[in-house]
Design a protein around this nucleic acid. Sequence first.
DNA 1: ACCTGAACACCGTTCAAGT
DNA 2: ACCTGAACACCGTTCAAGT
Lengths: 189, 189
Amino acid sequence: MSPTPARTSRDAIVAAARSLLEEEGLDAVTMANVAARVGVRPPSLYKHVRDRGALIAAVADEAARDLGLLMDEAVGAVSGEGADARLLRAAVAFRVHAGRSPRSVALVFAGLGGNLQPSVEMAAVAARPLLEVSAELAGPDRALVAARALTAFAYGFCSMEQGRAFRFGGDVDDAFRAGIEALIRGLAA
Amino acid sequence: MSPTPARTSRDAIVAAARSLLEEEGLDAVTMANVAARVGVRPPSLYKHVRDRGALIAAVADEAARDLGLLMDEAVGAVSGEGADARLLRAAVAFRVHAGRSPRSVALVFAGLGGNLQPSVEMAAVAARPLLEVSAELAGPDRALVAARALTAFAYGFCSMEQGRAFRFGGDVDDAFRAGIEALIRGLAA
DNA sequence: ACCTGAACACCGTTCAAGT
DNA sequence: ACCTGAACACCGTTCAAGT
């Protein structure tokens, strides 16, 4: 019975912003581009999201949720596998994900130049799987410290790799593997 | 004898862009803001820099040079100090620097959303001190791998810290120290 | 040789007016 | 209740015109 039914939705808007981010970068996530993708004029977006910042924060939240699901799966126990082997698998999965969706990963961890972040709740969901295996590796009282170190390394490495910061030759796959193994070894000791 | 002497210079322009970046963020580095700081109209800037991208790349180069000088100093041998202790000092110095100049650091390592980077030459200068101590720690043939791991951890950690990504409590200083020590231990083994 | 105002094609955002 | 065109204050960049 509404005078005019909604011609788009918040979900469609966030999805359009998300694909724009991944395909063309944060600069391409303009209200004009998003509006065009959902078939509406830019001012109409403000009926569904507060402003561009809130839209990008919503994208960050979705990206964090997906990352959490991915980690949950990657970390799943395989018969007879120790915490070290499971963390190595999780790190490799994270790197593959970062290679496929570099801008989403940057958005989740560093806000991509803006000050937007996922909500604490979503961050907690995304972090849980890693925290559990970290507790196995380093003990419950050092789980947070270990998870932070592993995340810092993996995110830092992939962020630099995607930003083409490794420009002195050498085997990048090797550096990632050696680094994560050294860190896991050091944290378990 | 020039018809009109230059009222500004490339150096002054880059310096203005740099302070704008650190004080207000990359979005504030507009041609209008930079021009106002050097006392000129925006179109005049194009006589000194190709475009905004080239200006930001020049800022990245200066930031990389400064970081290299800082690392060179931090890594300097103290009597009887091993490679592990020197790397720990370098990492702590890097973190202090990242706390003071977070946006410059982000620009050097990840391009800050744009695709700008320091030149390879400047990156090589900035990386040399770390590579030398890494060779001491892990042996010459593993120096690059070790330096990459240490950089990835330190940059990732500080980037997350500055982006307020550590939101589950705990001692962040402790996490940094434990992480870098674990990594150094693992790389030396 | 450098600087300038005017212009162009864009932004994000607001708001009164339509349906 | 949602969508729209028009408007406002901004961008980066180009260019002919000034000195």
